[in-house]
């Protein structure tokens, strides 16, 4: 699945990922391939992106919103 992480100033991440963990407003949750469409707000915490080859990236955020649709994830964040 494809993930894009955007801030108002720039795009900070873009690429294929196998697992994405985000700090939802009601608690942290994970997204794997073929996740159902979801829109959720995010609270303060860390976004973890695991790409192919177990490469991990993490981003500290203050707030944000995530949209998952047909294996395309878009995360809008404020840092």
């Amino acid at each position: 699945m494809f993930i894009e992480i955007l801030t108002p100033d720039k795009k900070i991440f873009e690429g294929e990922a196998e697992l994405v963990q985000v700090p939802g407003s009601n608690g942290s949750f994970e997204i794997l391939n073929n996740h159902a469409p979801i829109i959720s707000t995010l609270g303060e915490g860390k976004i973890k992106v695991v790409s192919e080859g177990k490469k991990e990236d993490s981003f500290q955020i203050k707030s944000g919103v995530i949209e998952v649709l047909k294996n395309k994830i878009i995360v809008l964040i404020e840092t």
Binding site: F29, P37, I39, T41, L69, L76
Partner: peptide, 24 residues
């Protein structure tokens, strides 16, 4: 129309997003 799951609730998301869109 996509059948989204809304977390936590639609109203809560709306409340969060409107200030964001104003700032933008």
């Amino acid at each position: 129309v996509n059948d989204y799951i809304f977390e936590p609730t639609k109203d809560y998301i709306m409340k969060e997003l409107i200030p964001k869109s104003l700032k933008i």
